[in-house]
Design a protein around this nucleic acid. Sequence first.
DNA 1: TATGAGCGA
Length: 142
Amino acid sequence: MKNAMGMVFLARTILTKPNCPASASKLRYYSSLPSSPLANNKLFVGGLSWSVDEKSLTDAFSSFGEVTEVNILYDKDTGRSRGFGFVNFSKEDDARCAKDAMDGKALLGRPLRISFALEKVRGGPVVVPHLSKIGDIATRNT
DNA sequence: TATGAGCGA
């Protein structure tokens, strides 16, 4: 079984994440203001083929780092993929690496359009009470 | 059935 070693090397080759020379942009933004609406660990992946599911997306991106979350948005009615999704990495270097490497590359026949995801609502939704309801309650309780 | 810019339960 001299192929066993070869298999190990093959596996290591697949599992080894490609090194990213473009990791020089380790700038940190110290502003407390939401000046950058871009998430650093999360990628917006558009241009997905409608036959791509979360598993194939994970397989396509997990070689660049630790993928912590993968979401594909499906249409409520038809159940079909809406053609885009989100891939979350544990390190932003890996996310940038995957973006640089996979942006424009085709997956299942369609070129991927990758960019950093827009930062989702920070701290949860802000519930603004409706003024008419408040008036209602006020008149009812007096 | 076929279709293709964008940012989410």
